[in-house]
């Protein structure tokens, strides 16, 4: 149970077309919900990857430094929520989240393909990121087949992810 806005609220936003932060602000102003569950139309499929500054080869230790290159992806179906920019120095004091990449597709296969394309485009120089690990999961047979359980990482193997 998380009694707050969730990190993955973006997935709900891109599949429903709603802006959950605006809804929160409206509720805090004392407004009542302006819609019912029947009015929420879920369209297509979305995936979010959290891009973290961490080193998979050093047991996912946080990685800090100046982002000498920051080239974020875009194009159809891609949303990037981030506070980073070229020249930004990733401080060592806080969590290692650099960006959330959200891919939307008409179905799961299109969302996965768009995410793979976006992660291929994403160029970050200056810190080590977990983008290679995300790519390995997305390319794994189990993930592609939708056979996702909480054991997936164990099955795919953290060592394989690090490689």
């Amino acid at each position: 149970m998380n009694s707050r806005i969730q990190v993955e609220h973006t997935v709900t936003e891109v599949t429903t077309g709603m802006d959950l932060v605006k809804e929160q602000i409206a509720l805090a102003s004392g407004e009542l919900l302006s819609f019912s569950e029947e009015q929420i139309w879920v369209s297509g499929h979305a995936i979010e990857c959290r891009v973290n500054a961490e080193d998979a080869e050093a047991n996912f230790a946080p990685s800090t430094g100046v982002l000498t290159t920051w080239l974020a992806p875009g194009g159809p179906g891609i949303r990037v929520d981030s506070h980073c920019f070229q020249g930004y120095e990733v401080p060592p004091y806080y969590d290692s989240l650099l960006a959330k990449v959200i891919a939307w597709g008409r179905d799961r296969a299109e969302a996965v393909a768009r995410m793979q394309r976006a992660l291929d485009e994403f160029t970050i120089v200056g810190v080590t990121t977990n983008i290679p690990a995300h790519k390995k999961i997305l390319a794994s047979e189990l993930f592609r087949a939708g056979q996702v359980t909480t054991h997936l990482i164990d099955t795919v193997g953290v060592d394989a992810l690090a490689g």
């Binding site: 709900t12 819609f35 979010e48 959290r50 799961r108």
Partner: peptide, 25 residues
């Protein structure tokens, strides 16, 4: 109250590698 759909987060607990999707398969 209303429920705004669901998200599959199975890859989440480990190693901060996270992929979630709008509809659990």
């Amino acid at each position: 109250g209303i429920c705004l759909g669901e998200r599959e987060c199975s890859t989440q607990p480990c190693v901060s590698v996270i992929a979630t999707s709008g509809r659990s398969s």
